[in-house]
Amino acid sequence: MLFRLVAADLRTVLKKNIITFIAIAAVTVANLVYAYGLSSVYGVRTDTLGFADNLALVFAGSAPFEPRPGVMFVPPLGWLFLILLILYTTLDYPTESLHGFGLQALVRCRARTLWWVSRFILVAAVTAFSLLVVVCSVVIWSLVVSSSFSAVVHGESLQLANLAPWFLKAAEADALPFFVGLFLAFEALAFAQAAVGFVLGSSVSFVVLMSSLICSAYARHWALLGNALMLLRWGGIVKEGIATGSSVLFSIVIMSLCLSLGGLWFRRADLIEKGDKI
C-alpha cells in the first residue's frame, strides 16, 4: 500500500512540477551565462574550465559579508533563487499528503512511523530529481562550450565568482567532496522543510528555510547549511572555508532528527483534525 502511495505520489509531484523543473534548468543556464560573461571583466580564461567547474559555478554563492560603511548586504540572488526553486518542488507535499489517497493509506496501514518514513523517501527522490535537472543542464552547457568532463575544480572558476586569488588554498581540487556535501545539504534542507511543513504548515517552512539561506549568505558557519551549497565557502579549495566533513555530519544529524523526533510527533498528532484545518 505504501509502495503504491510513494510511486503514485512521485508521478504526481513530478508532473505537477514540470514548469518548476524548466525554471530550474533556465536559472542554471542563466547562472552559467552570467559567470562566463564575467570572464572578460576579471581577465579569466574559460578554456580550462571543465564540467565540475561549470556545475560548481551554478552554486558559486558569495564570500561572507564584511560590514563596512556604505556597503549594504545583498544575498547572491541567482544562487538563492535556484535553491528556493529546488526546495519548492516539495514545499506543499507534506500538507497534501494528509488528504485523499495519502490519508486513506495512513488509516489502512495503521503504521504511522512507516508512513512518515515513506513521505521522506519521496521528498528525497524529488529533491534528487531536481538536482539531476541541474546536472543535465550543466552537461548540455559543457557540450555547447566544449568543456572537458573533468571532476576537478580549478581556481579560475572561483575567480569567475569574484574571489581574489590569494584566498585560494590550492590551484585545483577534487570536486567530489564538495558535490557530496552539497547533495546531502540539499536533502537535509528538504527534510527540514517537510518536517516543519507537517507541524506548522508550508508557508512557515518556506519562510524558515529562506531565512536560513539568507543567514548563510551573510555569515560563514557550519551550522548554516546554506554554506555547504556555496563553492566560495568550500574549505577544500578556499582558505578558512567550511570543511566538508562538518557539513556532511550536520546534514546527517538534521535528517536523522527529522525522521526520529518528527516521527515521534507524528505518532501522537491528531491528523484528522489537522487535515481538516489545512
Rank of each mutant, 00 (worst) to 15 (best):
G50M: 06
N31I: 12
L57K: 08
R45E: 15
L55H: 04
V33S: 13
I19R: 08
D53R: 10
D53I: 03
A8D: 13
L10S: 06
R4C: 01
A25D: 01
R4P: 07
R11W: 13
I19Q: 09
T48L: 00
V58H: 00
V29G: 09
I19M: 05
V6H: 00
T12H: 14
A56Y: 12
V58L: 06
A23P: 02
V29T: 10
A52L: 01
Y34E: 12
I24W: 03
V13M: 15
L2C: 06
Y36V: 08
T28F: 15
L14Y: 03
L2A: 09
I18D: 00
F3H: 03
R45I: 08
T20A: 13
S62A: 14
V6M: 05
N17E: 10
V41M: 04
S40Q: 07
A26I: 05
A8T: 03
A30R: 00
G37W: 07
I24K: 02
K15M: 15
T12L: 14
A60K: 08
T20G: 11
R11H: 14
R11L: 15
F59E: 07
S62V: 06
A52D: 11
A35E: 05
T12S: 10
D47S: 12
T20V: 11
A60Q: 07
T46P: 01
D9K: 12
A26G: 01
A56E: 09
T48H: 05
L5G: 07
T46C: 09
L49K: 03
V13N: 05
V29P: 08
R4I: 03
G50A: 11
T48E: 05
A35V: 03
G50F: 10
A8R: 04
I22Y: 09
I18W: 13
R4F: 14
D47R: 02
L55E: 08
A8M: 05
A23L: 09
R11C: 03
A23V: 04
G61Q: 09
L49Q: 00
D47Q: 08
L49F: 00
K16G: 11
L38N: 15
R4N: 03
A35N: 06
A30V: 15
D9P: 04
L10D: 04
L49N: 00
I19W: 06
L10K: 10
S62K: 14
T28N: 06
L49P: 00
T28A: 10
L10N: 12
V27E: 15
A35H: 06
G61T: 01
V27M: 15
D53K: 05
R4G: 09
F3D: 13
V27K: 04
A25E: 02
K16S: 15
S40T: 13
A23E: 07
A26M: 08
F51N: 12
I22E: 12
V29K: 06
Y34R: 14
L10C: 10
V27S: 11
K15W: 11
F3M: 10
V58S: 01
V33W: 09
G43N: 07
R45T: 14
A56M: 04
N31Q: 07
V27I: 13
R11T: 09
V44E: 05
G43A: 00
R45Q: 11
V13S: 07
